[in-house]
Amino acid sequence: MATGGRRGAAAAPLLVAVAALLLGAAGHLYPGEVCPGMDIRNNLTRLHELENCSVIEGHLQILLMFKTRPEDFRDLSFPKLIMITDYLLLFRVYGLESLKDLFPNLTVIRGSRLFFNYALVIFEMVHLKELGLYNLMNITRGSVRIEKNNELCYLATIDWSRILDSVEDNYIVLNKDDNEECGDICPGTAKGKTNCPATVINGQFVERCWTHSHCQKVCPTICKSHGCTAEGLCCHSECLGNCSQPDDPTKCVACRNFYLDGRCVETCPPPYYHFQDWRCVNFSFCQDLHHKCKNSRRQGCHQYVIHNNKCIPECPSGYTMNSSNLLCTPCLGPCPKVCHLLEGEKTIDSVTSAQELRGCTVINGSLIINIRGGNNLAAELEANLGLIEEISGYLKIRRSYALVSLSFFRKLRLIRGETLEIGNYSFYALDNQNLRQLWDWSKHNLTITQGKLFFHYNPKLCLSEIHKMEEVSGTKGRQERNDIALKTNGDQASCENELLKFSYIRTSFDKI
């Protein structure tokens, strides 16, 4: 039985969820670079991206490699990797027998973001014989899940209580170790020597080791999670996991709180800001991140802002960003909400898709409305799209047979046209069989910064309504002859009103 693990408890099935942008060198404390989270699957090609990484700022997932063999891993080693800020997950990587050479110096898994409450997941690794993470000293947050690894031993010899604050939620089941077939031998045991430290858990006094050649490092209890030197002297209180010299914040392997210019500090002093819960960055760093993602459509890219001495992905609820200094300031009234469309555009074809934009005031991208039916549609669209004030790209209304009016965009005031449909149009209306009105132009103002209007096959939309939009939106004169079809717009509506004058002759039985 794995020490510190839980057996036999019912657990939810383990679901495996399925960018080499360097964020800056980590400095003297770390020998390499800070790398983003990685999802490495199918083959070993991307694994080489770990070569210079000291910190993975995010998670590391290595999974679904069915053609790899043990010899493929023999020359692979990433000794610079010290810390993973989120979680480490391995799933069905064939041929991998140990992690001792792959990650010989991995010391800390912070667990800032977890995989279903777990910071370390080893699942269905069919050839893994031992973990071998002999320098792993601290899992700051989260638990361990090690399950269905039929060859995995050296679990009962690990004292997880020396690595985690609590072992109650560890789930370590259905491994070879369960069948008591392992016969784990710690260093020196074969020669009758006791080389590794022994600890007591559940009444068992057991030597602690990761492999037959690597003991588990056990520091004096007084050192807590700070770690200790090879001689057993406690590291500085700002260290986490390990250090090369005692009581020196510049000799830590990793930091308990924050890293700044080669030393570990309790908090980031001005003019620095907390970033990702582990390091200090200056304003320029946060500003660069903001600008890199301002026009990016890459998933996970955030326009970072500053709030409460932190550089964070977005302002919290009730705050909006001051564009001059990136500071989050309290909103006066309802907060603006910028919604970034991942692929640059979004099609609204149902109430469900409209709900995804609920509360958005600025759309960074283009909207395509293609709704053919739905219950209580006008009210639903207004509830979900009615706060949109600005669209950076274009607005396209296409084959939306259920629409009679666009009044559900009740606050839309600006279409920038930074991206144009077919390279020309910022407003595009095609084949809307029941569209009769755009907006009530006596109450609604709309500016279209650039781009043209396109109207074709809107049989109940009168040309007068379209011409009014040209005047109000500032697009009059931009359109070419064929942009607004004269014969297919309003051709099934009563669009022309003329005053009919009647004269009559009164007659009676005795007068003409």
Rank of each mutant, 00 (worst) to 15 (best):
P220H: 07
I84T: 00
A230R: 03
T68P: 04
L96F: 03
N325R: 08
R298Q: 06
T107A: 08
L155F: 06
H236Q: 04
C215E: 10
S296K: 08
D248P: 01
P316R: 03
L120T: 02
P271S: 11
T194W: 15
D178N: 15
N138H: 15
T329C: 05
H290W: 14
C315L: 01
N117D: 04
C311K: 04
N170D: 12
L128Y: 00
E57C: 14
T68R: 12
L128V: 02
E231L: 05
H214R: 05
R297G: 09
P316N: 04
S143I: 08
H212D: 15
S237Y: 08
I306D: 10
F285S: 03
G111C: 02
E181S: 11
D86V: 00
R74K: 13
P249W: 03
N325P: 12
A119C: 02
F275V: 07
P197T: 04
T189R: 08
I56T: 01
G262R: 06
I62L: 05
L164G: 14
Y304I: 05
E33D: 08
V265L: 05
P249G: 10
L120Q: 00
G95T: 02
G241V: 07
C252D: 00
T250D: 15
C53Y: 02
C182M: 05
C228A: 02
G232R: 02
P249I: 06
G333R: 08
N135T: 10
G132F: 00
R145H: 08
S317A: 04
H48M: 13
L120S: 01
M125C: 01
I40G: 00
R208E: 05
V200F: 12
C331E: 02
I146V: 08
P31L: 06
Q61E: 15
E147H: 12
D277E: 11
P31T: 14
T229Y: 02
K80T: 10
S213W: 04
A190R: 11
R298L: 11
V173Y: 12
S244P: 03
E181T: 05
V121A: 10
S54L: 05
F103Q: 00
T250L: 09
N149Q: 03
T45L: 09
L76H: 13
N195L: 10
R298G: 10
F285M: 08
P316T: 03
K191G: 12
P271K: 08
W210S: 08
C264G: 00
S225R: 09
G37L: 01
Y259A: 04
I40Q: 01
E97T: 07
S284H: 05
C264R: 00
V305K: 10
K176S: 11
R69L: 05
C286R: 00
N195V: 10
I163K: 02
T45M: 08
M83G: 06
H291V: 08
V253S: 14
I122S: 05
T68H: 12
C223Q: 01
E238Y: 04
G95N: 07
W278E: 05
E130W: 06
R256L: 09
T211Q: 04
L120G: 00
Q303W: 03
L102P: 01
I139K: 00
C311I: 03
C280K: 01
R41A: 07
N170Y: 06
V206F: 14
D178K: 10
M38V: 05
T250Q: 08
I109F: 01
E207T: 10
D159N: 13
R110W: 03
S161R: 06
C331M: 05
